[in-house]
C-alpha cells in the first residue's frame, strides 16, 4: 500500500509501527473530530505531512509547538509519521 510512496526520497525509511507510536504525541492535539484551532491531519497526503514537518523543523513555518515537535524528529521519524497519518481515515 505504501510502496509507491516509500520510493519517494522524503519517505525513505518509513516504518509504519514506529509512526503509530510516534503519532501519540500528535494525537494529543490533532484529532479528526475537530478542525478548530488545530488542523485535522488524518488521511492527509504523506508527502504533504513530511514537507510540513520539515518546514517546521527548519523554522520556516511559525508555531512554537510544531517547531518544538519537529525539531525532535529525524528523517525516518518524519517519514514514519507521514505514512501513518496518511493511513488514517479522515
Amino acid at each position: 500500500m505504501f510502496q509507491g510512496l516509500v520510493a519517494e526520497p522524503l519517505l525513505d525509511g518509513a516504518d509504519f509501527d514506529y509512526g503509530e507510536y510516534l503519532s501519540g504525541q500528535c494525537l494529543t492535539c490533532h484529532q479528526s473530530s475537530s478542525d478548530e484551532g488545530i488542523p485535522a491531519i488524518n488521511g492527509a497526503e504523506a508527502l504533504y505531512i513530511a514537507k510540513k514537518l520539515i518546514l517546521y523543523k527548519n523554522k520556516e513555518l511559525e508555531n512554537e509547538v510544531m517547531q518544538l515537535v519537529a525539531s525532535a524528529l529525524d528523517k525516518e521519524q518524519i517519514a514514519s509519521l507521514a505514512i501513518y497519518f496518511n493511513s488514517l481515515e479522515k
Binding site: C29, Q31, S34, N63
Partner: peptide
C-alpha cells in the same frame, strides 16, 4: 487561545 481550544478538543478525544 484558539490553539488551546483545539488542544482541549484533541486531548479529550484522545
Amino acid at each position: 487561545y484558539e490553539e488551546s481550544i483545539g488542544w482541549y478538543n484533541g486531548i479529550t478525544t484522545d
